[in-house]
Write a protein that binds this DNA or RNA. Structure first.
Lengths: 344, 344
DNA sequence: CTGAAAGCGCTTACAG
DNA sequence: CTGAAAGCGCTTACAG
């Protein structure tokens, strides 16, 4: 292994001079700097990350804590991960991916051993067991997902309440009078998936305020159950003219359900989903939807995290809570409901 | 930060004794061991990872190099990643996730700086630019995916040639005489995705050997193009009774295509895919398929990698090339083709 | 503009 | 069974 001592020897300078010449942290004569640079290049020198971390107390690594639950739709998670990883790299950081089931234990391991300079938590629950640990960790943390208690961390999420209101208002403007909302499975709620009830409560309230009849149910996250749920719902509420989906698996299953029933959007049914554009393209989902912006949320979390890491005064700034204003991506699946068919 | 010096002081022993008591690497009196353990617990001691890495030349971190190309179906990648990450953790390692586009550059960064003890490469190409770097790196490497030159690395992959033959033979036994094969997009082939042509060539040869008429095409990886391709194929080859898919996106799109055409399996068409069971469940794919076993391949790669890392003599053992024997998961989508309808 | 030295927090031969 | 010391490869005050 080639060390900075080898470079120093080859360039005929001291190790400290070699270090400074490479880092540019103090002025070095052009000639010496060149000699050091040449030596480093010729010998193929790369600083040892462990040694550097020990000396600087910076690892240039961020921890990424993802959690994969049986009853969640895994493909949706990947985009958050890539948003984090790509932004981290752009800012000079590598990403330590932690997927183990016991997130609290994992968080303790990587923070207390100083493997990372900061941590991003994905899939945050209302009363997330990882949060107390994160607050007492020496590294800053950023969350994608809104917990009950935001103290001590920076939080980024979609504004799910505004999203719920937006869904209802959009349908209301089109004169829909009866809607169905399909949320995530009840398990997700029980586990503390606050975004589920934040959107649902907002939809319920707004529907009431607009005089809209609403049928709100928890969907499934797996095929084919989710398809059956959708069929049952449409059977049970034949007068409903609009369908709101806060459930990726349901959105992915809906095209075949509509096809099977011979229904078209927006002619027979207006549909609004909540997922990312990338998700829509992968699964060819033709529904107007609220963009969940996983890449953007991951990026925002990382940028704020790195700000806290690198700017000394930023460590003490008040923590940030940033809820993304939802935006409707119009894919033409909503319209004015047609007049009810004459009863037989 | 609490260091081993703090533990030593609290326990009234030297730092070396504290270290040995914690690691168990030499015999320590029960009493001292207890005092050290108590001190460590009370002070909440965790060894500093950077310092340990520097002293031992082991980071207990594995690099995971994933690559996400525009024209590939991302959800399929996640399962390989989880197979690697979960197995690594089981064996005491953390996972450094690298997703940047320039994989060779990334590989050099993490290996030459000694951030990792070993590396797993995903999505390996025939002439993979990362391989020369990996061979000259000081750490061992394991691949998921078969490259043209396997020297210097351990390689794990599905036996795609056997998979192709298995597909054809299964259809042949059922007396199919005309088949369609949909491979990955041509871009994947051009990029060196050897598994595409390994399966395709095997299918072509075996079909010829069995006297079966075969139409082999490259599919798309995106919706809705992939659906259109499937429709066009079925239009062009109305006499084909079997469909072979080496393309996850095509498999995911097929149910709605069949539905749109009013076709059922195996009554009107026999279908065999190639994807994982997890993938089948997520997308509710009702097709008999060859299990691609991403979690198992990731696990095998990590186990072998760790073997090389921890066992000194294993470093010099001959490298391994392990091709998984394909297994057909019968989901009832293949059968004896019905007699051709009487011509109108 | 440059060098000698201390120190980051560990582990592990070397001595006893 | 235990301790004092060296060393892993860096960075950075301290001196000149």
């Amino acid at each position: 292994m080639v060390t900075i001592g080898d470079i120093a020897r080859a360039a005929g300078v001291s190790r400290s001079t070699a270090s400074y010449a490479l880092s540019g942290k103090r002025s070095i004569s052009a000639e010496v700097r060149q000699r050091v640079a040449d030596a480093a290049r010729e010998l193929g020198y790369t600083p040892n990350a462990g040694a550097r971390a020990l000396a600087t107390a910076e690892t240039m690594v961020l921890g990424l804590l993802a959690q994969f639950h049986e009853d969640e739709f895994a493909p949706a998670m990947l985009q958050y991960m890539l948003g984090v990883s790509d932004t981290a790299r752009e800012l000079g950081y590598d990403t330590l991916l932690v997927t183990e089931a016991d997130g609290a234990r994992a968080l303790r391991r990587i923070t207390s051993s100083r493997m990372v300079d900061g941590v991003v938590l994905l899939n945050v629950a209302q009363d997330d067991a990882r949060l107390p640990l994160l607050r007492s960790a020496p590294q800053p943390g950023a969350l994608v997902g809104l917990p009950g208690d935001c103290s001590g961390v920076d939080v980024f999420d979609l504004d799910f309440e505004a999203a719920g209101r937006l869904m209802v208002d959009h349908m209301h403007q089109l004169r829909h009078r009866e809607l169905i909302l399909v949320s995530q499975p009840e398990h997700v709620v029980q586990r503390g998936g606050a975004y589920v009830w934040r959107l649902q409560n907002a939809v319920v309230q707004q529907a009431r305020a607009r005089g809209i009849e609403l049928h709100a149910v928890f969907g499934e996250s797996r095929q084919p159950e989710v398809g059956r749920t959708l069929h049952a719902l449409l059977d049970a509420h034949p007068a409903a003219t609009g369908l709101l989906l806060n459930n990726e698996a349901a959105a992915a299953a809906l095209p075949s359900v509509l096809h099977a029933r011979g229904l078209g959007t927006p002619r027979d049914l207006s549909v609004i989903g909540r997922y990312s554009d990338e998700f829509a393209r992968t699964f060819s989902l033709p529904f107007t939807s609220i963009e969940s912006a996983p890449d953007l949320l991951g990026e925002m979390a990382v940028r704020q995290l790195v700000r806290r890491i690198v700017t000394p005064q930023a460590r003490d700034e008040p923590h940030v809570l940033r809820l993304l204003t939802p935006e409707l991506v119009d894919r033409g699946s909503t319209g004015v409901p047609s007049a009810p068919p004459s009863t037989s």
